[in-house]
Nucleic acid binder design. Structure first.
Lengths: 130, 130
DNA sequence: TAAACAATTAAACGATTATTTAATTATTTA
DNA sequence: TAAATAATTAAATAATCGTTTAATTGTTTA
């Protein structure tokens, strides 16, 4: 049996075949949720820092010139998503990147994205590095 | 002269050096804006389809079981961002992926992300493919 | 135990966003 | 030219989101 649902128009494209083999809803939601985590510039900065270091909320806030509640808010989002882990060190809470596959994916994307400093046309050279 | 601004706490991490070499605001905004485009599951589906085909709004809507205005809304966002191009074909408007570096970056990320069907642990194998 | 420091939580606010319904514009064809 | 098809736009709604201020919790130290 042919899974293909015929589309309203036939333009001789691959669209019909593609539509029939579209990944399921849950997969798209998982992936878009992951991308949503790095769609905020503050979170991207936090991840850029924590991909290569571990530190406390105060230092992260100082590095980004942001208030403790604002930093804490994003750390919470990233931790709840499984991208960060935290450990208490005295009065401080130290955060760093998780070691999960999802975290590694994000790490890799960030590394590839920022390897060049993205001044002029910030996208093409980045793409080459991916 | 040392660009490093001393952080409130010293935990012997790389954080101080990282903070001093943080890419500028505009770079982070450009990149987070790009990720924002693929942070919505509907747009991710549209891009998944248009990375490998070109077709009209009606067919895209049929493939995703979405209303024409909803599809049009997202096509407009993606086109305005430079990720899609369109050409009129009679009554229809055909969309496909742009050939810019930014579009290629997104294409590459999507390809790498969806190469495996992401059932069990959908992240690790994807990462390997990047 | 009291004070100081670190971090989180709660409430409030403004801003953005995705979808729906209805109306409108553009193009083709009968 | 009138009707039909395709796509966009507009207005409205509901939902989400990021930041701020203020209050609270947790930990250490004087």
């Amino acid at each position: 049996m042919d899974e293909r649902r015929t589309l309203p128009h036939d333009h001789g494209t691959e669209m019909g075949r593609l539509a029939a083999s579209l990944p399921d809803e849950v997969t798209f939601l998982k992936m878009s949720d992951t991308f949503q985590l790095i769609s905020d510039s503050t979170r991207l900065k936090i991840l850029w820092l924590l991909c290569h270091s571990e530190d406390c909320v105060t230092n992260i806030g100082a590095a980004l010139e942001m208030s403790p509640p604002a930093v804490s808010h994003h750390l919470r989002i990233l931790k709840q998503a499984g991208l960060l882990t935290s450990r208490r060190q005295g009065k401080e809470m130290h955060y760093t990147l998780s070691k999960t596959g999802q975290a590694k994916l994000v790490h890799r994307i960030i590394d590839a994205t920022f390897e060049l400093n993205c001044t002029e046309d910030c996208y093409h050279p980045i793409f080459e590095k991916l």
